[in-house]
C-alpha cells in the first residue's frame, strides 16, 4: 500500500514539473510576440525563462518607482560621509601621485593642491560623457548632482546615436541631453572602444564630437580625459590596447584640446597604472573596468584636478 503511494508522489512531481515547463514555454512564446515585442534586452532570454524574467522586471520597476527618492538621498549622504572619513587615509597616497600627474598630464590652468577649495557641489552642473569606466564612476562614486551619460561600449563613433537610461536620464540621446540643460563643465572620456579604427578617423570623429558639444553648450568648459590603459594581460593580448597605442591616442587628444580655448586635457593614468603603464590589479578585477574603490579614488582625483579659472 505504502509503496504505491510513494510511487504516486514522485510520478505527480515529475508530471507537474514538466507541465509547468511546457506552460512557461508556451506563455513565453506568446509574450515574446506581444508584451516583449521588439525589446532588445529579452532577445537572449529563452522562451521558458521569459515569463519569469518579465515578472522579475515588473516587480523591480515597481519597487524602484516608490522608494527611489529616499534611496538616492541615502546614497548621497553616504558618499559624502565616505569622503570625509576617508580623507585622512587617502590624502597621503594621492597627493604624491597627483604631483606626478600634473607634470605630464595637465598643462593648462589646473589647480593641484587645493582640495579644500573645491567640494563636490562644484560638480553640480557637470556632465560626464564616457564609456564603461565612467559608468563605474556613476555607479560607485557620484560627484555632487552631476549627470552621467555613459554605458558599456560607448565610443566616439556612437555617443550621439546611443540612448541612455540610468539615474539621470530616461531613454535620452546626447543631443537631447545637451539641448535640455545648461552645463558649466563637460567631461568627455571615451576612446577605449575605438582602438580598432584608424587613429586618423577616430580623431576626425573626436573633433566633430567636440565641436558639436561646443556648439550646443558654448558656455561650458570641456575636459577631454585620457583613455585609461588596460592591465598587462589585456594590453598584450588585445590589439590596440597596448600602452604605446593608447598613449599615441592620448597624445592626439591632448593636441586636440590645445587647439581650442576652454578645452582642457587631463591624464589619469598615473593614478591607476604601474610603472610600465599597465592597469594595476588592485584597481581592476578584470583588467579593464574599475573597482568601486578605484572609482572613488578617481572621483577624488577629479575633484583635486578640477579646472578653476
Amino acid at each position: 500500500m505504502s509503496k504505491t503511494k510513494k510511487r504516486y508522489y514522485a510520478f505527480l512531481f515529475m508530471i507537474a514539473a514538466e507541465a509547468i515547463a511546457i506552460l512557461l514555454t508556451c506563455t513565453g512564446f506568446i509574450l515574446r510576440r506581444t508584451v516583449a515585442k521588439g525589446a532588445e534586452q529579452y532577445e537572449t532570454v529563452s522562451d521558458i525563462a521569459l515569463p519569469l524574467v518579465l515578472i522579475r522586471d515588473r516587480v523591480a520597476a515597481k519597487e524602484e518607482k516608490e522608494p527611489q527618492e529616499t534611496t538616492t538621498k541615502e546614497t548621497e549622504e553616504s558618499t559624502t560621509k565616505e569622503t570625509t572619513t576617508e580623507e585622512a587615509t587617502t590624502d597621503e597616497t594621492t597627493t604624491d601621485e597627483s604631483g606626478e600627474t600634473t607634470t605630464e598630464g595637465t598643462d593648462e590652468s589646473t589647480t593641484e593642491e587645493t582640495p579644500a577649495a573645491i567640494d563636490e557641489s562644484y560638480f553640480d552642473e557637470t556632465l560626464f560623457i564616457g564609456d564603461a569606466r565612467v559608468d563605474d564612476l556613476a555607479n560607485n562614486a557620484r560627484l555632487g548632482t552631476a549627470d552621467y551619460f555613459c554605458g558599456e561600449n560607448f565610443s566616439i563613433f556612437n555617443i550621439f546615436s546611443k540612448k541612455v537610461t540610468n539615474d539621470d536620464f530616461r531613454n535620452a540621446t546626447l543631443d537631447q541631453v545637451l539641448a535640455s540643460k545648461s552645463y558649466t563643465q563637460i567631461y568627455l572620456m571615451v576612446g577605449f572602444n575605438d582602438t580598432e579604427y584608424p587613429l586618423s578617423s577616430v580623431m576626425k570623429q573626436y573633433t566633430y564630437a567636440l565641436e558639436r558639444i561646443m556648439e550646443l553648450q558654448p558656455q561650458a568648459r570641456i575636459i577631454l580625459g585620457a583613455v585609461i590603459h588596460a592591465n598587462e594581460e589585456t594590453s598584450r593580448s588585445v590589439e590596440g590596447y597596448a600602452v604605446k597605442d593608447l598613449n599615441t591616442m592620448n597624445a592626439e587628444i591632448k593636441e586636440l584640446a590645445q587647439q581650442y580655448d576652454g578645452v582642457y586635457f587631463i591624464d589619469w593614468n598615473d593614478l591607476f597604472c604601474d610603472e610600465n603603464g599597465y592597469l594595476r590589479s588592485a584597481v581592476s578585477s578584470d583588467g579593464v573596468h574599475l573597482t568601486a574603490s578605484a572609482a572613488k579614488e578617481w572621483a577624488e582625483e577629479i575633484v583635486k584636478q578640477a579646472i578653476v579659472e
Binding site: Y9, L12, F13, A16, L24, A49, V53
Partner: peptide
C-alpha cells in the same frame, strides 16, 4: 521525507529553483 508534506515542500523548492534559474 516520505510524507505528502515533504513532497509539497520539495515541489515549492523546485519552483523557486526554476524561478532562480530563469532570472
Amino acid at each position: 521525507h516520505k510524507s505528502l508534506g515533504a513532497w509539497i515542500c520539495l515541489f515549492v523548492l523546485f519552483l523557486i529553483c526554476v524561478y532562480l534559474m530563469a532570472t
